[in-house]
Structures are given as structure tokens and as C-alpha cells.
Simulated scan of single mutants.
Amino acid sequence: MKTATTKRRITKTATMRAVVGAAALVLSVATLTGCSNGAGNGGGGGGGTGDASKAKIGLLLPDSVTARYASADKPLFTAEVKSKCPGCSVVYANADGDASKQLQQAQSMLTQGVKVLVLDPFDGEAAASIVQQAKQKNVPVISYDRLIDSADLSYYISFDNEKVGELQGTALVAALKAKNVAEGSGIIMVNGSPTDNNASQFKAGAHKVIDASGYKVLAEYDTPGWDPAKAQDWAAGQISKLGADKITGVYAANDDTGGGVIAALKSAGVKKLPPVTGQDASLAGIQRILSGEQYMTVYKAFKPEASQAADLAIQLAQGKKPAADTTVKTAGGASIKSFLLDPVAVTTANIESTVIKDGLYTASQVCTSEYASACSSNGIK
């Protein structure tokens, strides 16, 4: 039989248990709510709430073999972000030609709480998984220079890439005609990487001109990873197979692959090099143009491209959604809001008025002792 005192103790104990249980329930709900909000905001503030004036912005570039990424894109983009948002920081990574590595780099950035990803994909199809994971964390993705095959992109910033190929093809055909090379003569084509959506557009633009020119494409090659060494090896094989004298022109999709072909031709003992195209206005490419080894390059003004990307990234970090100039369709047919800049063909005639005038290089950087005479002949001071 329970006494009155015992009953009071039981009642008091039950009351205390109820209070503790209620407190635990409140704490549990608060914890779950906090977790839910963290996931919704991107696990550390990515793309959602937080101080936009101190935002982390991720910059992912595709490879180390293309000179422009280290010499132009990275420093220009970083400087623009710092200029427009002094408290913001850029988290940078280069995939070194590895799609899996780029995915891991993106995941690391998302874990660090970046608010925006600016992504130049090594593989435009594989990078769609990065966009998907970023979307899950409410982090917008800007496809930079190369288009990612994803309907979930926020924006795309690049150049009119088919026009790039048209400029290359037009310059090559004009050079052949100026040399009185007979129609029916042979061209080899060294295209860009098969995993790069832009490369297919360069190739399409070039074929549009070359196929209607009367000149014959003897062979063509899609260069894995834009690797100059692979372009050189392939070209060396074609020189052995076709004979150097049969190759009267070379379409090379960029300066680095063009440099590989030129090296193969020189190794084969070719003294009078055929016209060779390029792209990216690399310093080595510009100097080869001055020396007569390369005929032309395509200058894509990296500064306005990087500036546009930095400005857009900052606006996205602030929660803004600015209007775009146009739309571009992905390989899957999705329309992406886009900004497209105009490329420019560069030969000896306009080096001074393009890459030097724009400050991409100084005259002293271009006109080293080896190229001083050629610079003087072309009015570069």
C-alpha cells in the first residue's frame, strides 16, 4: 500500500520526466529544422543566404596544356572579382584534363560553401553531374567558355564558336589562294578535343568554308584533351603516310595543336611550311606568326569574357538574375541564357592593333631578341 508521501514523490518524478521529455522534443525539432535549412541553403551558404560581400566563388578550369588558362583566364577572373567585390574570394582548381578530377574538385568547392560555380568543363557531358549536384545545394553554375550539356545551367559565357571555325577556314583558304595553290590540293585538319562541345562547333564552322573551297581534306583528327603531343604524333604519321609535299595547308583548331603540327613538319625536314591556323592568341602562337611558321590565330578577348563572368557570378551571389543577350541550345536541346563575344582573326597585319593594344601582351613580351626584327618589320614597337 502506497503512503501519501510516496504518492507525492511519484507525481513529482512524473512531472520532471514530462518537462525533460518536452525540452528534448523542442531541441530535436530545432536541430532537425536547422539541418533542413542548411541543406536548402547549400550546406554552408552556397547560393542561398549569407553575406554576399564575402562570397566564395568557385572557378574550375579544364586543363593545363592550353596556355591561356594559366596566363589569362585565371588571373583576369580573379582580378575582376577582387575589383568588383573586395571581400569576395575565388576558390580555384584545374582539372588537368581529367573529368573525374574536375568532379571531385567541384564537390570540394560545394562542401566549402561556394555561392556560385564558374565552370569551364573538360568534358561537357560529364560535367552535367556537377551542375546537378550544385543545383541540389542551390548553387548556380555559369558555363564558362565551353558549353555544358545541362538544362540546369544558369548562364553560358563564351564566343560565337562556329564563327571561330569560319574565321580559321576563311583565313586558310585565303592564304592558299594567295600562294596560288591549285584547287584540289590537300589539307589536313587537326581538330580539338572530342569531349569539348566548342571543338565540334569550330570544326563545323571550318568545314563550312573548306568544303566549299575546292581544296581537299586529306585526313582529320580529333585531338584527345587538346594535347599538343598527340597532335604532333598524328601529324607525323600523316606526313609519313601522305608525303610532306602533299600537305599544302593545315587547319589546327588552336595554337598549341598547331605548334605540334609545325614541330612534326620541321622534324620531317620541311623548310617551307604550309599555312597553319590557330586559336587563343597564345604568346608562342603570336611569335610563330611573326616568324612565319604559323599563318594566323583567332583572338578571343579573354578580358571581357572573364570580366563578364566575374560580374555575373557576383550578381548571382547577391541573388540577382540579370538579363542575357541571347540564348544558346545545349546538345540536349535546352535553351541557356547566354552572352556571346565576337572573335577576331589575327595575322601579322593586326597583332599590334589587337593583342598588344588590348594589353594581353606588351610589345616587349612579344618582341624578344629572336623576334625583334620581325616586330620592327610589322610596325610593332
Rank of each mutant, 00 (worst) to 15 (best):
F122D: 09
G292E: 07
K179Q: 12
P75E: 07
A219D: 01
I188K: 01
E166R: 14
A324Q: 10
D358A: 15
T11S: 15
A127H: 02
G269F: 06
Q112V: 07
V355N: 02
R68L: 03
A229M: 11
V26R: 15
E125Q: 12
K271G: 02
L32A: 15
P75G: 10
L147P: 06
A4F: 12
A175S: 08
I247Q: 08
L103Y: 04
G40Q: 13
D51I: 11
G249V: 00
L59Y: 04
S376C: 12
G124F: 05
R9T: 13
D342S: 13
G260D: 07
S291H: 13
A372L: 09
G249L: 00
T111A: 05
D256T: 09
Q201S: 13
A151E: 08
L265T: 14
K271Q: 02
V26Q: 15
T248G: 06
S158T: 13
K329F: 06
L265S: 14
S150I: 07
I188M: 07
Y295E: 12
A334V: 04
S377W: 15
N198F: 05
S369T: 15
V90A: 02
S200M: 09
C375K: 00
K12E: 13
V181D: 03
L283V: 08
D149L: 05
P140I: 06
Y361M: 00
S193A: 09
C375I: 08
V114T: 01
I289L: 08
D96Y: 11
T33E: 14
V328D: 01
Q279V: 04
K135W: 07
R288F: 03
L153R: 01
Q279K: 01
E125G: 08
F339P: 01
V328M: 04
Y92A: 08
Q318C: 03
K74M: 12
D311F: 09
A14P: 03
L167W: 09
N41S: 07
A22S: 10
E80D: 15
V90Q: 02
Q201Y: 11
G292M: 06
G97V: 00
R9W: 13
Y215C: 01
V190M: 14
L242M: 14
D255K: 06
D149E: 07
G45R: 00
A18Y: 05
P121C: 04
D358E: 15
E370F: 15
A72F: 08
S267P: 05
V270E: 04
L242C: 14
E80P: 12
E183M: 13
K216R: 08
F202V: 04
A331P: 12
A134M: 09
G44M: 04
G50S: 00
Q168G: 03
S28R: 04
K320H: 09
K271R: 05
A55Q: 05
K321A: 15
S377Y: 14
A244P: 11
A23L: 15
K320C: 11
